[in-house]
């Protein structure tokens, strides 16, 4: 129950996420060198257009990518099809976008 367009969307978002994940891991290793404090993290991210863009892109790509992956699992394992499957996929995108946007807002704009 995966159309070729959803397949392409999942591959493109994976291509987008691959360097972002590497960057994220790199920053994590760098950030903990002198101990890990909320102040240090917020000092780097608050008001930063760059980090807002990076994590914002990450959230959008991840929401699409994960929802398509879960759609396949729900179809194959639970047998959900048609409009119901579309609604569940959309709900997962909205949920992940909401949670992710809240986190990005918290570290960049608040």
């Amino acid at each position: 129950m995966l159309s070729i367009k959803l397949y392409i969307a999942q591959r493109l978002t994976a291509m987008l996420m691959a360097p972002l994940v590497l960057l994220h891991l790199g920053v994590m290793i760098y950030a903990i060198q002198g101990g890990l404090t909320a102040g240090e993290i917020l000092g780097r991210t608050q008001g930063s257009f760059f980090w807002g863009l990076i994590y914002g892109l990450f959230v959008v790509a991840l929401s699409i990518h994960a929802a398509i992956g879960l759609r396949v699992v729900i179809y194959e394992w639970l047998g959900v099809t048609g409009a119901r499957l579309n609604w569940i996929t959309t709900a997962i995108v909205i949920l992940l976008l909401g949670l992710g946007s809240k986190a990005v807002y918290a570290v960049v704009l608040s």
């Binding site: 129950m1 995966l2 159309s3 070729i4 959803l6 397949y7 396949v72």
Partner: peptide
């Protein structure tokens, strides 16, 4: 081969 149940599955 890209219709329902096609290669993308």
């Amino acid at each position: 081969v890209t219709s329902e149940g096609g290669c993308q599955s």
